[in-house]
Design a protein around this nucleic acid. Structure first.
Lengths: 352, 352
DNA sequence: CTGTGGCGATAAACCGATTTATCAACTGGT
DNA sequence: ACCAGTTGATAAATCGGTTTATCGCCACAG
């Protein structure tokens, strides 16, 4: 039971392999309809399926893109990037070769070699957090960076616009009338870029709103989990009323989850007594908290699409901004934000 | 700037391409050390890298396994299966071709054809929930099913042992002295196998413990989310004391999250007033609840490993049980289980 | 001197397609 | 009758390796 090849079709249709190839590839310019139809019919009749390996050897294209990622399993929300990349690849007739390196440089180099040896048509290098990465040796030109930027530049890259995202989050609080807005930042975690950018966005909005930033309102969570959030928010909420924030912007949804808990333990209700905004829009968490959390979504799917589209050439690589494209992070309004409580009822309508 | 090929090495080393091939593939039996070393040296010197496509064409092996999955992005904890499959593949020198079909049968057939055409050495068909699946046309023999079983049998498959997992969960509650144990089942969700098996396990433990199962203690969550859990658990907890459960076994961690919330709203403390056990050990949820949730872990990583190992032939395919292997689901003890509250303090030490 | 066997190495076939160069037959113009 | 051009089709080269069959040479036994 051998696979049927182009020769079998040729023999059966009484033509040469050349003709079959020509017909099946649409190069039927100089081939009359009768022959063309006969070849096509025979091909489907005997169940011909082309051998992509042979074709690739000749054409030097494998219609395969490799996705190298440092880590997948540990950050499940990032799989949307993979999903998106695969979707786009499929739309254009490409298949996705997935390699996980766990961030190990040796594995990485090995993987790049193996992929090059397989003649992949291109690569996408995905990180699971925004970061600056060492470019693995031998990485082919044109490789697109996903959620990370190459240390030396020179490659197209896409990252979430954390600064603008944070600004939207804090603006939402300012719009509701908050002036004492705390920021629970990440501590020593490996998220330096996101942490810095979100802090910048936070400060920028306060500045624009004419609110003097109070350095004591920025605290660090020892770890960016619920537990870390509980501790950090607790510290904030145990201050005397005048120094206590009326709203907290959290580095991510998990620390927001902790902030909820800290508030509840102190008899504070969200959003009546305290407004909270998160980041990530982490599925199964943000929407399921009580009340549902207002947060900023990380556009993983869109970033994945962008990266693959650029790699496939259907989108032009950005030239400005050192080749890195910033993807907007939409604010997701839910129910954890309200105006600040009127502790010392302000003298209503005091003229002007 | 052409790629360096085997011919270049041959010319440079003053031997024939045949000899180079022989040396570089370890078939150096009949080749003296001096030649062997010279060829090797030249090869690395001029940076020779083999062309896998050409090699595959001749050897008929691509060292590539395809992972077809119905859905990835929507069930992030399942990516551990992908991670595991990829890890094992890499360990054995294979690369993973990833295809997501979104459960679409046409896409599926198309994907199988494309993969066959690329001469993949084998396939793994992964589902994101335990289910019975229609086998796509053309699926090659030996394909391993991951977290699903083929409708007609005939393929090796691995699924979580939900029945035993549920038994472990309920046994834990029985061991603590609970007798009124509720089960919040899934409703109309597409999880029929898991739902049925977990219910069976629940009943089985009660039976063995000599506890008459109370049908009213099994309720269905309209959806398996926190919201669904709140409603279902609320219904349970609003009953008169005699009909109220002292412990709840939840279909999954998210409904357990809802059960926590329902209990809290009623002033009940966990685990003192109510014990709760979940299922899935969903990351970022189970361990982060307050108190941390005792639950049953779904062995996604192990299942992924198993599937790839069987597909690669390093593990024999099971013959018993229609070819489906059940992977144990370990009970993860945390802090949501305690003995039932002594409502009507039992007559202590009543002899015998 | 001849036949046998091993050693070192290679020419040539092959994997299954694509692509280039070529060819036979026919048409039509001169 | 001869050349040019068109049509329909194919032989052969190619992609870059692996594998099979063979070859020349020398040592050694008969």
């Amino acid at each position: 039971m051998k696979r049927v090849g182009i020769k079998d079709v040729a023999r059966e249709a009484g033509v040469s392999p050349t003709t079959v190839s020509l017909v099946l590839n649409g190069q039927s310019a100089r081939i009359p309809d009768t022959t063309r139809d006969r070849v096509r019919r025979v091909a489907t009749e005997i169940g011909y399926a082309p051998n992509s390996v042979a074709r690739s050897l000749r054409t030097q294209r494998t219609h395969t893109i490799a996705l190298i990622s440092d880590r997948i399993a540990t950050t499940p929300f990032a799989v949307e990037m993979v999903q998106a990349a695969q979707d786009v690849a499929r739309e254009h007739g490409y298949l996705l070769l997935l390699v996980n390196t766990d961030g190990d440089h040796d594995v990485e180099r090995e993987a790049v070699d193996a992929l090059l040896s397989r003649q992949v048509d291109g690569m996408v290098y995905a990180c699971m957090w925004s970061q600056v990465v060492d470019v693995p040796a031998g990485l082919p030109a044109g490789t697109v960076f996903l959620d990370g930027r190459p240390a030396g530049g020179g490659f197209p890259a896409v990252m979430p616009d954390d600064r603008a995202g944070a600004m939207a989050a804090v603006q939402e609080l300012v719009d509701q009338g908050h002036t004492r807005i705390a920021y629970i930042d990440a501590g020593e975690e490996p998220v330096p870029i996101a942490s810095r950018l979100r802090h910048e966005g936070y400060l920028e909005v306060l500045r624009r709103a004419g609110i003097e930033p109070d350095p004591s309102l920025r605290v660090e969570a020892s770890i960016t989990t619920a537990a870390g959030g509980v501790a950090a928010a607790g510290e904030l909420l145990d201050r005397p009323p005048a120094q206590r924030p009326t709203a907290i912007f959290c580095f991510n949804d998990r620390v927001a989850m902790g902030a909820y808990r800290a508030a509840r333990h102190r008899g504070l209700e969200i959003p009546t007594d305290l407004s909270v905004v998160g980041y990530d829009d982490q599925q199964f968490i943000a929407a399921e908290l009580d009340p549902p959390l207002t947060t900023v979504a990380l556009p993983h799917y869109e970033m994945g699409r962008w990266a693959m589209q650029v790699r496939l050439g259907v989108l032009a690589a950005p030239t400005e901004n050192d080749g890195v494209h910033l993807m907007p992070c939409p604010l997701i309004r839910r129910e954890s934000v309200a105006p600040p409580p009127a502790q010392h009822p302000a003298p209503a309508g005091d003229g002007e």
